[in-house]
Design a protein around this nucleic acid. Structure first.
Lengths: 194, 194
DNA sequence: TAGAATGCGGACCGTGGGTCCGCTTTCACG
DNA sequence: CGTGAAAGCGGACCCACGGTCCGCATTCTA
């Protein structure tokens, strides 16, 4: 069907914008003081271009996020254990959450920007849906869990970007300690094999 | 010290604003389409009055929130079991989280408005601090828990306003079911007494 | 009941997301 | 190549909203 290919300048500009936005988010105090105009200027394009390419702020954030997320997505969908589908559920659940946590640690500002993207809640984002479905389906294979849907939500909530930011930023919890805490929590939630 | 008493019209207006804001938040689709001007108009005062009384949007939200929260706070600090301090930890933890959940169910829009209050994360709010400290201290009395601070964060994260809103609003999970899910989750997290 | 102190209110401002439209660049086709 | 039209560009512009300001009204004090 359609998918008529874009002009090459459009493509080049799209990349420039993504790169500029990424850089700005990495080197900012708080995501909300990176404005659309800033990004356009840093990318050397006009605001119109930026909005034409991504629709609105949320669209740009989403596009960036998906890009960053792709390697992990692949590792989860078709990679080797402990992330890939061949992993037994008991090991895979902590591995998945650890991956999410690490991702948010590595992309703090971006994740933050996306979750507080003004309007709608993070729960309507399509990538959240994906994580939740996956986690739920894995949890379902673990006997003794009563409600895999809610459990998946609750576990993912423990990796929310602003919580991560709070722990890492304000309370200076080091990365490895946080990973250990989350891992402990997760294994505590899973029914202990008797 | 100071605390010079306010004029009575100031006090009256303050109440009018709180009432108007409350009403508007209850009957709105999304908290972000209740503007400050709306609130001022509904309260029959000028915008200046509103900002004089509460400083800024976040201040107003906070004031409203604290007001609503007060009964629960009292019940927790000095009330009878299962919320009050006399309750044994194993029962009190689920009771506290249930109270939080019910509060957010009863004040969905308001809690939402506060958490997404633009700028700073909910984790810097003083009322979050309070809940966290309390929950942590109760968790500490339960043997076998390795990290009460993180566990408290993670449990509270399961009651985040936008998650509650998502479950109640989009997925139409009924109140009692949600309470049961949370209760199950919480007891799952607490180490089972052997 | 006069004067000061406190508060009122709405016109006004700055900012930032998003739009618009005349001009430029690209590309398919001859 | 040359050429015309589609695709894209960019920055001036718009508007909504949070927040400020200051001349006027109300309340308090003596």
């Amino acid at each position: 069907m359609p998918e008529r290919k874009s002009r090459k300048d459009a493509l080049r500009n799209r990349e420039a914008v993504l790169a500029a936005a990424d850089a700005l988010f990495v080197s900012c105090e708080s995501p909300e003081d990176v404005t659309m105009a800033d990004i356009a200027a840093a990318a050397g394009v006009g605001k119109g271009t930026l909005f034409r390419a991504f629709g609105d702020r949320a669209g740009l954030l989403r596009a960036l996020y998906e890009t960053r997320l792709e390697p992990i997505r692949e590792a989860v969908e078709a990679g080797p254990p402990p992330l890939g589908p061949a992993t037994p559920p008991y090991q895979r659940v902590p591995a998945l959450l650890d991956a999410v946590l690490c991702f948010k640690l590595d992309n703090r500002r971006l994740a933050l920007a996306l979750e507080e993207s003004g309007s709608s809640s993070p729960y309507q984002a399509e990538h959240y849906e994906r994580w939740h479905r996956l986690l739920q389906s894995v949890l379902e294979q673990i006997p003794g869990l009563t409600d895999s849907a809610f459990t998946a939500h609750a576990l993912l909530a423990a990796t929310r970007a602003d919580l991560v930011e709070h722990l890492a930023g304000q309370e200076h919890v080091p990365r490895e300690r946080m990973r250990a805490q989350l891992a402990d929590f997760v294994t505590g939630v899973l029914p202990s094999a008797p």
